[in-house]
């Protein structure tokens, strides 16, 4: 006998993601999910973002890693609330992990919540966490051909940060090819060249981000 099931495979994840989003919207919290491969500069980008925006917004960070709490400690050292999630081998964060982390933070005291996903260009793209935007970072040493190898993440991201831009002279990175490949996958996504550790190019990125935080804050104060 045939029985209809008709539900998303990731039903549980999607339901919790929707609940998370509702909670964030109620508090006017803007949530950014940062995706990149290991070593692309996710934590450095977060630190640069904190330095640029901490006087304007109350920021909190959720750090996703397979193991260790070194990233959360790095963030906390700057006086920013940070929660470490250890996935214990899992290759991506899921919405219920975010909820447990969020429950340890005071959402009334946060304007911008940055989620650093597990370093991986494949799995995190399929999982909604309840975030408002997914942004990906590609670092110059990884090569300009990555959009051809990992198209989904480039198609999914709402903005692309091209990090370690200062190392361009040392690598055979064709920026025109890279931008064209990103445009073919995702014409709406801006590309922000940046050197997070030097602070170069951070202004354009945080201006884009601040615009979205403002919109969310206005929406939050309306409810």
């Amino acid at each position: 006998m045939k029985v209809d099931v008709s539900k998303p495979i990731l039903d549980r994840n999607e339901r919790m993601a929707a609940e998370n989003r509702l909670l964030f919207d109620e508090h006017g919290v803007f949530v950014l999910d940062l995706l990149a491969s290991p070593g692309a500069g996710k934590t450095s980008t977060i630190l640069a973002t904190i330095a640029a925006l901490r006087d304007r917004y109350r920021i909190a960070v959720i750090e996703g890693d397979i193991a260790s709490n070194v990233d959360a400690e790095r963030i906390k050292a700057h006086g920013i609330p940070a929660v470490q999630i250890n996935t214990g081998g899992a290759c991506h964060l899921e919405s219920d992990m975010i909820r447990r982390a969020v429950d340890t933070l005071d959402m009334a005291e946060v304007d911008l919540l940055i989620v650093e996903n597990v370093g991986n260009l494949v799995c995190p793209t399929d999982f909604d966490l309840g975030e408002h935007v997914k942004v990906m970072i590609l670092s110059v040493p990884e090569g300009h051909d990555k959009p051809y190898k990992y198209p989904n993440i480039f198609a999914r991201a709402e903005a692309v940060i091209l990090n370690k831009y200062d190392t361009m002279p040392a690598f055979d990175f064709n920026e025109d090819d890279f931008r064209e490949a990103v445009r073919r996958l995702n014409a709406m996504a801006p590309v922000f060249p940046m050197s997070a550790t030097l602070g170069d190019g951070v202004d354009a990125w945080v201006a884009w981000l601040a615009e979205r935080i403002e919109t969310q804050k206005r929406a939050g104060s309306d409810t």
């Binding site: 006998m1 045939k2 029985v3 209809d4 099931v5 008709s6 539900k7 998303p8 495979i9 990731l10 399929d126 198609a155 445009r183 073919r184 014409a187 709406m188």
Partner: peptide
Amino acid sequence: FFCELVQGRELDIECIDV
């Protein structure tokens, strides 16, 4: 280049035979 995805990201259970 400005195009919106209509389908292609599905991950759904359709039905079972029991």
